[in-house]
Deep mutational scan, measured.
Amino acid sequence: QIFVKTLTGKTITLEVEPSDTIENVKAKIQDKEGIPPDQQRLIFAGKQLEDGRTLSDYNIQKESTLHLVL
């Protein structure tokens, strides 16, 4: 699982696999929060994550925290 922290300070927990794409993660966030993926920007280690890449591409491991910017 990974954590996604929103600007409001809320933390969302997501069940993911390293092979999941960023697009996939955004879809999971939409399921939980109702935020359309095209409004979501995910930041990890100061980098904006691209939809077509996977979590493992960015070396995002379990218990990692991503930041969600709208």
Rank of each mutant, 00 (worst) to 15 (best):
Gln1Val: 15
Gln1Arg: 14
Gln1Trp: 15
Ile2Ser: 01
Ile2Val: 06
Ile2His: 01
Ile2Cys: 03
Ile2Ala: 02
Ile2Gly: 01
Ile2Met: 05
Phe3Trp: 06
Phe3His: 09
Val4Pro: 00
Val4Tyr: 02
Val4Lys: 00
Val4Thr: 02
Val4Gln: 00
Lys5Tyr: 07
Lys5Val: 15
Lys5Ala: 07
Thr6Arg: 07
Thr6His: 06
Thr6Met: 15
Leu7Thr: 12
Leu7Lys: 10
Leu7Phe: 14
Thr8Arg: 09
Gly9Trp: 04
Lys10Ser: 08
Lys10Gly: 08
Lys10Arg: 12
Thr11Ala: 05
Thr11Trp: 08
Thr11Tyr: 10
Ile12Tyr: 06
Thr13Cys: 11
Thr13Pro: 06
Leu14Met: 04
Leu14His: 00
Glu15Thr: 12
Glu15Gly: 07
Val16Ala: 08
Val16His: 05
Glu17Gly: 08
Glu17Ser: 12
Glu17Gln: 11
Glu17Cys: 13
Glu17His: 11
Pro18Ala: 10
Pro18Leu: 14
Pro18Trp: 13
Ser19Gln: 10
Asp20Tyr: 07
Asp20Ile: 05
Asp20Val: 04
Thr21Tyr: 08
Thr21Phe: 08
Thr21Cys: 05
Thr21Lys: 09
Thr21Ser: 08
Thr21Gln: 04
Ile22Pro: 02
Ile22Gly: 02
Ile22Thr: 04
Ile22Arg: 00
Ile22Asn: 01
Glu23Cys: 14
Glu23Arg: 15
Glu23Thr: 09
Glu23Ile: 13
Glu23Lys: 11
Asn24Thr: 13
Asn24Phe: 15
Asn24Lys: 12
Asn24Ile: 14
Asn24Leu: 13
Val25Ala: 02
Val25Tyr: 02
Lys26Asn: 01
Lys26Trp: 03
Ala27Ser: 11
Ala27Arg: 14
Ala27Asp: 08
Ala27Pro: 00
Ala27Tyr: 14
Ala27Lys: 15
Lys28Leu: 10
Lys28Gly: 03
Lys28Asn: 03
Lys28Arg: 08
Lys28Phe: 06
Ile29Lys: 00
Ile29Leu: 07
Ile29Asn: 00
Ile29Tyr: 02
Gln30Met: 13
Asp31Ser: 11
Lys32His: 09
Lys32Leu: 11
Lys32Glu: 07
Gly34Val: 02
Ile35Gln: 03
Ile35Trp: 13
Ile35Phe: 11
Ile35Pro: 04
Ile35Glu: 02
Ile35Ser: 04
Pro36Ala: 10
Pro36Met: 06
Pro36Trp: 06
Pro37Met: 15
Pro37His: 10
Pro37Lys: 14
Pro37Ile: 14
Asp38Met: 10
Asp38Cys: 15
Gln39Asn: 10
Gln39Cys: 14
Gln39Ile: 10
Gln40Asp: 01
Gln40Met: 13
Arg41Trp: 08
Arg41Tyr: 11
Arg41Glu: 08
Arg41Gly: 06
Arg41Ile: 14
Leu42His: 00
Leu42Val: 03
Ile43Asn: 05
Ile43Lys: 06
Phe44Thr: 02
Phe44Tyr: 15
Phe44Trp: 09
Phe44Pro: 00
Phe44Ile: 03
Phe44Met: 04
Phe44Ser: 03
Ala45Val: 06
Ala45Leu: 12
Ala45Trp: 08
Ala45Pro: 01
Gly46Lys: 04
Gly46Ser: 05
Gly46Thr: 04
Gly46Phe: 05
Lys47Phe: 11
Lys47Trp: 07
Gln48Ala: 11
Leu49Cys: 05
Leu49Asn: 00
Glu50Gly: 04
Glu50Met: 10
Glu50Ile: 07
Asp51Thr: 06
Asp51Pro: 07
Asp51Asn: 11
Gly52Lys: 12
Arg53Gln: 09
Arg53Ile: 06
Thr54Val: 06
Thr54Met: 10
Thr54Gln: 07
Thr54Asp: 03
Leu55Gly: 00
Leu55Asp: 00
Ser56Tyr: 11
Ser56Met: 14
Ser56Thr: 08
Asp57Asn: 05
Asp57Met: 06
Asp57Val: 04
Asp57Gly: 04
Tyr58Lys: 01
Tyr58Asp: 02
Asn59His: 09
Asn59Cys: 11
Asn59Met: 08
Asn59Pro: 03
Asn59Asp: 09
Asn59Thr: 05
Asn59Val: 04
Ile60Leu: 04
Ile60Asn: 01
Ile60Pro: 01
Ile60Ser: 01
Ile60Cys: 03
Ile60Thr: 02
Gln61Asn: 10
Gln61Leu: 11
Gln61His: 11
Lys62Cys: 13
Glu63Asn: 13
Glu63Tyr: 14
Glu63Val: 04
Glu63Ala: 10
Ser64Tyr: 09
Ser64Phe: 09
Ser64His: 07
Ser64Val: 07
Ser64Ile: 05
Ser64Met: 11
Thr65Leu: 10
Thr65Glu: 07
Thr65Ala: 04
Leu66Glu: 01
Leu66Tyr: 02
Leu66Lys: 01
His67Asp: 09
His67Arg: 08
His67Tyr: 15
His67Thr: 14
His67Phe: 14
His67Leu: 14
Leu68Arg: 00
Leu68Lys: 00
Leu68Thr: 02
Leu68Cys: 03
Leu68Trp: 02
Val69Lys: 08
Val69Thr: 09
Val69Asn: 06
Leu70Arg: 09
